[in-house]
């Protein structure tokens, strides 16, 4: 299959700010001179359901969709979402996982159990894994809402691109009052 693009999945829970994350990375990639496609789903699934954003870039991107076994990186904003999307990772791909747990309704009602030792099981599958407690880092940066930016800091280590490009994207996409917190959150994620 023709595939000289890089594919990144953001997997999270409605309300975790995956849309801001996709704005930040979109800006970096556009400034980097790439063809870029980002795909997200709005509407009903956003009400606390699983949400996913596909990010693809390269010289020329056709499909905006990432299929099973195609993602170079999966940025999971929550542990169970990491497990859910594992089969989308390329054999040589890497997972970045926020260790935060958000129990879904079937777990809350007791109809199902939250999987134990998700990160261990993902690592045992042979996938490269980097896990971090993005919620704690976000709180340290000044707001629990900055989990998304912490994860972008962690992703920046994988994708490269100059620090000034990420800074331009951060300052271009953050609301003015959140910029300082977001800068701290990005740095903490990068250093984690």
């Amino acid at each position: 299959m023709m595939n000289n693009t890089t594919s990144v999945i953001f997997a999270g829970v409605g309300g975790q700010g995956t849309l801001l994350a996709s704005r930040i990375i979109g800006r970096v990639l556009l400034d980097g001179g790439f063809d870029v496609k980002l795909s997200e789903v709005h509407g009903m699934s956003q009400r606390g359901g699983s949400v996913v954003t596909y990010v693809k870039y390269g010289e020329k991107v056709y499909s905006p969709v990432i299929d099973k076994g195609e993602a170079d990186y999966i940025v999971a904003f929550e542990q169970m979402e990491a497990a859910r999307w594992l089969n989308y990772l390329k054999p040589e791909g890497k997972m970045l996982i926020n260790t935060q747990k958000l129990p879904p309704m079937p777990v809350i009602t007791g109809a199902a159990e939250y999987n134990a030792d998700i990160i261990g099981k993902i690592a045992a599958s042979g996938a490269a894994v980097k896990s971090l407690n993005a919620l704690e880092l976000a709180e340290r940066a000044g707001s629990a809402r900055a989990v998304n930016v912490v994860m972008m800091g962690a992703l920046s280590n994988e994708l490269g691109f100059g620090g000034e490009m990420w800074e331009a994207a951060l300052s271009g996409c953050s609301p003015a009052k959140a910029l300082d917190i977001n800068r701290k959150a990005f740095k903490l994620g990068k250093e984690a």
């Binding site: 299959m1 829970v13 409605g14 009903m44 699934s45 956003q46 009400r47 606390g48 359901g49 699983s50 056709y62 499909s63 969709v65 299929d67 099973k68 076994g69 195609e70 169970m80 979402e81 497990a83 859910r84 594992l86 089969n87 989308y88 990772l89 054999p91 879904p104 309704m105 079937p106 777990v107 109809a111 199902a112 159990e113 939250y114 999987n115 998700i118 099981k121 993902i122 045992a124 599958s125 042979g126 996938a127």
Partner: peptide, 29 residues
């Protein structure tokens, strides 16, 4: 999706690893 077309026309399937157990669904609420 591209995989669907590759599978139906070229007979190609993509290798992927799976999480070893069922993951509870996360429906909207």
């Amino acid at each position: 999706s591209q995989s669907l077309i590759a599978e139906k026309i070229l007979g190609e399937t993509v290798e992927s690893r799976a999480f070893p157990e069922a993951v509870p669904s996360r429906p909207p609420v």
